[in-house]
Simulated scan of single mutants.
Amino acid sequence: MSSAVMTHPVRLVQAQDLAHRLGLDGLAIDPDPQGPSSALRTALVAWSAAAPGASHHLVVQDDIEAPVELLEIVTEAATRFPDEALAFYTNWHARNGGAARLAALAGAAWVRAVPDEFTPSLAVCLPVTTAAAFTSFARGSAERHDDELFSVFFRERGRMSLLAVPNIVEHIGTSSINGHAAQGIRLAACPVSAADAGPLLAHGRVLEEPGWIPYMRYGEGYIRLPGQEKDADGGRGHHPWREALPATGLTEEGVHAVRKAHLPEDLAARVAHTFGRPFAEELWTYCLLLGRQAAHAARSLGPAPASVPDAAVSRLRRAAVAGAGPAGLSPERRPEAGPEEVRAMTALALSAVRTGEALL
């Protein structure tokens, strides 16, 4: 395993500290820091830095936090999946974040990324042959986002990356050299400790096809439908859950009936006090659909391996649910989610997930 940290001179000290703390090989510095912002420009340097004799290469970005066990965990994962592209972070309000959240509730430790969205690239491990193929593919591209070009590359090869459901890598800060600052606070979908992530990633189950995927962003719930990447816009559009329901076998009337019968008014009122009744109801409905689909996906998985502690699985589920509310807020409102607000949203989301698992 060789490794590199992507960085820009304005974050050089931060990147040096990260590389030192995690025992990473070195820095990949933007070769044209005065030029137009381009993560791809730096990514090409990073992915070309695989050491001679290495079988795999890990590239992380400079604005992350990760445990000192990162290299050990990544190496074990690469040994388990030697031919796969492995991503160790998923954005909490993205479709892939929704896929990771669904997989966590279904009892899986890995999930196949969707083909109609960027590949989360804060921490990615590739076989060196794949890294070389990507640099060859990407060189000369007019695209400036490495995460977008990754998805084009993987789609053309017919196999998207595997996403680590327990996220051991966390995004830090809200600034963005590449123009994403407007997204505000951007965190991992399912953050867990290295102690829990180790056995989960080494032995946990893989969810290859989660089916339709509920996700929530900017205060609205959506559903990512299977095959959406074949839409005229490449699948990049967002389908509100009400519009997408007919393709799931559910009805809006049925969902409303379940919500009317089972929405806990006390919890909804606590969330509504800060974020409004429409958001509280939307969060509960999103998590209802999430619980239903997770229960459905769980049936496609084999038996849980004995080597994965039940407590680790439970903590992963809890992390997935705890992030659903804050991730679903619009960027300007996420700073309002203090500890009390997060506890209220988590309790409301958990009630919906349990209802969805049991009723739909």
Results as ranks from 00 to 15, higher is better:
A257L: 05
S55M: 07
T119V: 15
A43Y: 06
L122A: 07
M160E: 13
I64V: 13
F134K: 00
L329T: 00
W284D: 12
L267W: 03
P335D: 10
G204M: 05
H296Y: 04
P199A: 08
W47V: 11
A108L: 05
A106H: 12
W284M: 07
H273G: 13
V5Q: 03
V342L: 12
L289F: 07
A358L: 09
E341H: 04
I73R: 04
P36L: 13
E252T: 05
S48V: 14
P331F: 15
D146W: 06
E282R: 01
A257F: 00
E332P: 01
A113H: 12
G53Q: 12
F81P: 04
L329I: 09
P305G: 01
A113E: 08
I168N: 05
T346S: 08
E229L: 10
A66I: 06
V313K: 15
A352T: 09
Y218G: 02
A269Q: 06
A108C: 01
R236A: 02
L44W: 02
L24W: 08
V60Y: 04
D266E: 11
T79A: 15
L58N: 02
E336N: 06
P36H: 08
H256T: 06
R236N: 01
A123L: 00
R144P: 02
V313G: 15
K230Q: 11
A294T: 15
I177N: 14
E208Y: 07
H171D: 01
V192R: 10
A49T: 15
T79N: 10
A272K: 06
V255I: 09
V59N: 02
F81R: 09
P67T: 04
R21S: 04
V165S: 14
L105K: 10
L187N: 11
H57T: 13
E357D: 05
S175W: 02
A43R: 04
P120F: 00
A268D: 09
A104M: 08
A46K: 00
L329A: 12
W212A: 13
V60C: 00
T42L: 14
S330W: 03
N167C: 06
P305S: 00
M345S: 09
A181G: 13
C190S: 04
A104D: 11
S161Q: 06
A50F: 14
P226M: 14
S2I: 14
A324M: 07
R292V: 01
G173Q: 01
T355F: 01
A39S: 05
E336Y: 09
P326D: 02
T90R: 05
D62A: 00
A257V: 05
T135H: 09
D266R: 07
L122M: 13
A78C: 15
L12C: 08
E281T: 02
G173V: 08
G291H: 12
A131Q: 13
E220N: 01
A268L: 12
L163P: 03
A28S: 01
A358M: 06
K230H: 14
Q34R: 15
